[in-house]
């Protein structure tokens, strides 16, 4: 554990809390892509199957439970409790175009060919693109509420901080995982355009609005 990994995990946790709090407080999931949330639940489910096979630390186990539980709670809020407020007309990204290539790539490029390892690899590939339905939704409506922008910023920062963590780990332990690194870089790059808008607009008190 190092400071980059810890702040990365905290950014991830904060992102989830912002999202749940926003939906709960406003009693609405307007502007939130249910499809991205379904993909995240799939990511955590396939990655954390190792909860039963390998123990790392109480911290890891606790965080895995939190990520799993909150991802399903989010889906429940969007698709059941506040279903009426779900903006499905704008949430039209075809998630099979992300799931199937991620699965195919995981079958082809992995560290080891067994069930758990392929699913872990799939979760890494899928996570890198899971935000696309949400970004697509923002681009389709041309704007995002500030709170949704804060959520996206926290969620994007998490993998960016993990990249610093990987550099640090390589320098100090010689440890590296190419699959996680390449996917993590792709994931972070996808947020770059958003980061730019966030810093130049949202932080200056303006609404995140895309140029027409």
């Amino acid at each position: 554990m190092n400071i980059f990994r810890l702040t990365g995990d905290l950014a991830h946790l904060i992102a989830i809390i912002i999202l749940l709090h926003k939906i709960w407080k406003s009693r609405s999931c307007a502007g939130i892509s249910g499809k991205s949330q379904v993909l995240f639940a799939l990511v955590y489910t396939t990655r954390y199957l190792d909860l039963v096979t390998s123990y790392v630390s109480i911290y890891n186990t606790f965080m895995k439970f939190v990520f799993l539980a909150t991802s399903y709670a989010t889906i429940y809020l969007i698709y059941v409790k506040f279903k009426a407020t779900y903006d499905h007309n704008h949430d039209t990204f075809r998630i099979e175009f992300l799931i199937l290539p991620s699965l195919a790539l995981a079958l082809l490029i992995n560290h080891y060919f067994n069930f758990l390892e392929v699913l872990w690899t799939f979760s890494i590939y899928l996570e890198s693109v899971a935000i696309l339905p949400q970004l697509f939704m923002v681009s389709k409506t041309g704007e995002a509420e500030s709170i949704t922008s804060h959520y996206l910023f926290a969620l994007g920062s998490y993998r960016a901080l993990y990249i610093l963590n990987w550099i640090y780990r390589y320098a100090t332990e010689g440890h590296y995982d190419l699959i996680a690194i390449v996917a993590g870089v792709v994931q972070t790059v996808l947020y770059c355009d958003f980061f730019y808008l966030y810093i130049t607009k949202v932080l200056k008190g303006k609404k995140l609005q895309l140029p027409a």
Binding site: D9, V56, N60, E117, D177
Partner: peptide, 10 residues
């Protein structure tokens, strides 16, 4: 490197 290795990150 030895595989399968345990994944120690989240």
């Amino acid at each position: 490197k030895r595989f399968p290795m345990p994944h120690d990150e989240l």
